[in-house]
Design a protein around this nucleic acid. Structure first.
Length: 713
DNA sequence: GAGCACTGC
C-alpha cells in the first residue's frame, strides 16, 4: 500500500477556487478545535474524543460555517455576521443560489428554517425541499419538526407516494423529487411555493434533471408575470444562446396557461455536495455559488501500487494487514480467508453504494473502496437494459472516503493506484443519459413542452434515445401525428403513475372488459420479484409456486398470487381480526408460500392508488370472469411492441428489433416454449433474457395492433 | 436452468 496523505478531504471538495478561504471567525474557531481533537486522538484518548465528537455534533447542527466564492471586497466590508443572516441575505439577493455543502453541514435541516424565520412563508407560501429518496424526505422532516417542537404534518411535513404528512398549515415541506414533478402536472407554476430547494442535486437523478429544466422555466415565467426578470433571463437574451427560441416557446406556453394571474418570483436553491457547482452555476446563467463548510475530520487516503485483479482478496488483505483495531479470534480469521464467513466478522460491514449517501452508519473509521459501481445502462436502439460494472466517479470516491471521517479522523483504502483516481470522471453520468425516457417525455408533453430535443436540459439525452421514446409513445397512441399529446389517450396516460406501456394496458382494458384483472397485473408488474426462493429451500419454493402457476404465462400467474392473497386476507377479516393481526397473518401466508411480502404490500398499495385514479377517469371497471382469452388479447394489444416468435433452436426472436432472446428460467413458460409470446422485460446478463411472458395467438397482433403489424406483412 | 447496484410516481 502506498500512502498518500491528502489532509483534509474537504480541500479536494472545494470547488469554488483557490481564493476560497475560511473568512469568518466561526470557521477559524472550528478549525482550531478540530486540530485539538486530533492531538488528543494521537494520544489515544479515545473516550475523550468520543465525548467531544458528540458535543460537536450537537453544536454543528445550528452552527455551521460558510465560505464563499469571490467578492473579496464585500467580504472585507462585512463584519462577522451570523451564518443565518448571511445565507438569508444571499437568498434575498439572488433568484437562484447554488449551495455547495459538505456532508454534515446541516444545510438540509437548517436552511429551510432560516428561510421560514426570515419570512419567506409570511403570505402562506410553502418552502419545498426535494430529496432523491423517500427515506431522506421522511427522516429529515421528522428531525426538523422535532427541532421546531411541532408535530410532523403541521408547520413541518413531508409528502411521498402513499404517505402524505402535510396539512394546510405546512410551510416547510420535504418531498421526493418525483413527487414534485407530479405536482407540476397539476400546478404548472408551482404557485404554492416561494422557495424550492433541490437537495443532493449532484446525484443527478432523472427526476432532478427534469426538475432543473422545468424550474428554470417556471422561474422565468413567474418573474415575468410579476414584472421582474431573472438574472439568467437577461443573460440569455444578451448572449444570444441558440436555445433562446425554444425557451421562449416553452415559456410562452406556460405564460398562456398563466393567464392573468400574478405569481411572486420563485426562489431556487440548488444544493450539491461535490465537484459540480460550476456546471450548475453555468446552467443557471452564472448563478451565484456559495460554499457551506461541513464538519469533516481528516482522512488519510491510501492507494495500491498496482491495479487489483481480485478485489475481494484485496479487501481481505487490507482488513487484516492494515487495520489493527479489527480484533479477531484465530478461527474467525481463518474462516474469513475462506471468504464464506466474512459477514460474521465483528466490525466489518459490507455495503453497496447505498452507504455512499442514504444511510449513515455510526462509528465508521475505515473505508475500503474497490472503485467500482454497478449501474444500469440502456441501449435505445435495441431497448435492452443491462447492469454493468464501471469505475466510480471522483465525486463518488470522495463520498465513499468521506464516510470514514464523520465522527473522528479516519482512513480510506482505495484499491487502485493513484494514477487511476486521476483518470476517473469528475461526476457520475446523469441518469437521464442512461435510461428509457418514455415516461419523462410523456410528462413534459403534458406540461405543454412539445419540443423535447430543444428542451433546455442541463445535459441533453442522446437524440437516438429521445427518438426511440417518441416513437414508442406514438405507437402507443399517446402522441398525435405531429407528436402532440393525444386526447383522450395521451392525457389519460399522464394521469397514471406507471410506465406508459402499463397505463396504455389499463386504458385498453376498459374496452376488453378486463380492468379488474389488468389493475392487478400492472400493479404486480410494477414491483420487483414477487417470488422468493432462498437457496436452501429451492425445491420447497418451487413446489409452492406450482399452486399459482398458469399454463398461459406469468401474467395470469401473478394474478393468481394476488387473488389468493386477497382471498386469504378476506377470510381472516371475516373472523373479526383487526387490521394489525390480519397484516401479521398475511406476512405468515407470504412466508409459507415463498412470496416476497414487501413486494406484495407494494403491489397492493399501487393497486389501490391506480384503481382510484381509473375510477375518476370514467373508464369501465369490469372483470372478464373466466374468459381469460379476453385478458390475453388485451395483453397482446398492449404489449405488441414486445412480441417474440419461437425459432427452431428454441430461442426467440423479437418482432420489433429482431433480437435473439431466451425465456428466463424463472418464467412459468420456461419449459413449454409456446410459438408466440409477449413479454414485459428484456434484460441482458450473459444472454438476452425476457421475463414476465404470456402466450398469445400470432394472428392477434395484426388484428389488435394494425398500426404496427398490418403495414409490415 | 439464473443470479438480482440503487432510486422514484
Amino acid at each position: 500500500m502506498e500512502k498518500r496523505e491528502r489532509g483534509r478531504e474537504r480541500e479536494t471538495l472545494d470547488v469554488t477556487s483557490d481564493s476560497v478561504e475560511a473568512n469568518d471567525g466561526e470557521a477559524r474557531q472550528r478549525w482550531r478545535s478540530e486540530a485539538a481533537i486530533e492531538t488528543r486522538d494521537s494520544n489515544g484518548e479515545a473516550r475523550q474524543r468520543r465525548e467531544q465528537t458528540i458535543e460537536r455534533e450537537k453544536e454543528s447542527e445550528r452552527d455551521f460555517a460558510m465560505r464563499e466564492r469571490g467578492d473579496e471586497e464585500e467580504k472585507k466590508k462585512s463584519p462577522k455576521v451570523s451564518l443565518e443572516k448571511r445565507l438569508v441575505e444571499e437568498v434575498r439577493k439572488h433568484e437562484t443560489l447554488i449551495i455547495v455543502g459538505e456532508t454534515g453541514s446541516g444545510k438540509t435541516t437548517q436552511l429551510p428554517q432560516f428561510l421560514f424565520n426570515a419570512g419567506f412563508c409570511c403570505n402562506g407560501e410553502v418552502i419545498g425541499i426535494t430529496e432523491p429518496r423517500r427515506v431522506a424526505a421522511v427522516s429529515v422532516a421528522k428531525r426538523v419538526a422535532e427541532e421546531c417542537s411541532v408535530e410532523v404534518g403541521q408547520k413541518v411535513g413531508y409528502s411521498i407516494r402513499f404517505d402524505d404528512m402535510t396539512s394546510s398549515s405546512t410551510r416547510i415541506k420535504y418531498m421526493t423529487d418525483g413527487l414534485l414533478l407530479r405536482e407540476a402536472l397539476l400546478d404548472p407554476y408551482l404557485s404554492r411555493y416561494s422557495v424550492i430547494i433541490i437537495d443532493e442535486a449532484h446525484e443527478r437523478t432523472l427526476h432532478t434533471d427534469v426538475l432543473l429544466g422545468l424550474l428554470k422555466n417556471v422561474q422565468l415565467t413567474r418573474s415575468h408575470t410579476s414584472g421582474q426578470l431573472c438574472n439568467y433571463g437577461n443573460m440569455k437574451a444578451n448572449s444570444g444562446i441558440i436555445c433562446m427560441n425554444e425557451n421562449n416557446a416553452q415559456r410562452s406556453s406556460l405564460q398562456k396557461r398563466c393567464q392573468n394571474t400574478k405569481y411572486p418570483p420563485l426562489k431556487l436553491i440548488i444544493m450539491s455536495a461535490s465537484l459540480d457547482a460550476k456546471g450548475f452555476s453555468e446552467y443557471f446563467g452564472g448563478a451565484r455559488a456559495v460554499h457551506v463548510q461541513g464538519r469533516q475530520y481528516p482522512i488519510e487516503i491510501f492507494y495500491t501500487h498496482h491495479p487489483e485483479s481480485d478485489y475481494i482478496d484485496a479487501v481481505l488483505i487490507t482488513i487484516f494487514q492494515d487495520m489493527d483495531e479489527v480484533e479477531l479470534e484465530g478461527p474467525l480469521k481463518e474462516k474469513a480467508w475462506r471468504r464464506t464467513h466474512l459477514h460474521r466478522l465483528w466490525g466489518v460491514i459490507l455495503a453497496t453504494n447505498i452507504a455512499e449517501t442514504s444511510v449513515t452508519i455510526p462509528g465508521i473509521k475505515y473505508v475500503i473502496d474497490p472503485g467500482l459501481v454497478k449501474v444500469r445502462s440502456y441501449n435505445p436502439c435495441t431497448g435492452i437494459e443491462s447492469l454493468v460494472i464501471v469505475p466510480i466517479s471522483k465525486g463518488q470516491a470522495l463520498q465513499r472516503s468521506g464516510r470514514a471521517g464523520r465522527e473522528g479522523p479516519g482512513k480510506c483504502y482505495r484499491l487502485y493506484p493513484e494514477v487511476e483516481f486521476g483518470k476517473l470522471l469528475n461526476s457520475t453520468v446523469p441518469e437521464i443519459k442512461r435510461c428509457n425516457l418514455s415516461n419523462i417525455i410523456l410528462q413534459l408533453k403534458a406540461l405543454g413542452i412539445d419540443d423535447i430535443i430543444g428542451f433546455d436540459f442541463m445535459e441533453k439525452p442522446s437524440r437516438a434515445s429521445i427518438a426511440k421514446s417518441l416513437e414508442e409513445l406514438f405507437l402507443l397512441g399517446a402522441l398525435t401525428d405531429d407528436y402532440k399529446l393525444s386526447d383522450p389517450v395521451g392525457k389519460q396516460m399522464t394521469g397514471l403513475p406507471l410506465d406508459p406501456i402499463y397505463s396504455k394496458a389499463l386504458i385498453l382494458a376498459s374496452d376488453f372488459n378486463c380492468m379488474e384483472e389488468m389493475l392487478i397485473t400492472v400493479a404486480m408488474l410494477s414491483v420487483e420479484s414477487i417470488f422468493y426462493a432462498p437457496q436452501e429451500k429451492l425445491e420447497e419454493a418451487r413446489g409452492a409456486r406450482i399452486k399459482f402457476s398458469s399454463i398461459e404465462g406469468d401474467h395470469q400467474t401473478l394474478l393468481n398470487v394476488y387473488r389468493a392473497a386477497s382471498e386469504f386476507l378476506e377470510k381472516i377479516k371475516t373472523t373479526g381480526s383487526k387490521d394489525k393481526i390480519a397484516g401479521k397473518s398475511l406476512f405468515k401466508w407470504c412466508r409459507d408460500n415463498f412470496i416476497n411480502s414487501r413486494s406484495l404490500r407494494q403491489a397492493r398499495d399501487i393497486h389501490s392508488q391506480i384503481r382510484g385514479q381509473i375510477e375518476n377517469m370514467s373508464l369501465r371497471v369490469a372483470s372478464c370472469g373466466d374468459d381469460m382469452v379476453q385478458f390475453r388479447r388485451c395483453l397482446a394489444a398492449s404489449f405488441f411492441l414486445n412480441a417474440a416468435l419461437k425459432q427452431p433452436d428454441g430461442s426467440y426472436r423479437t418482432l420489433t428489433s429482431s433480437q435473439t432472446v431466451q425465456i428466463h428460467p424463472s418464467s412459468v413458460l420456461f419449459r413449454s416454449k409456446p410459438d408466440c409470446i409477449i413479454f414485459n422485460e428484456l434484460v441482458r446478463t450473459n444472454v438476452n433474457y425476457i421475463r414476465n411472458i404470456t402466450r398469445i395467438d400470432p394472428l392477434w397482433l395484426a388484428e389488435l395492433a394494425p398500426q404496427y403489424y398490418a403495414a409490415q406483412d
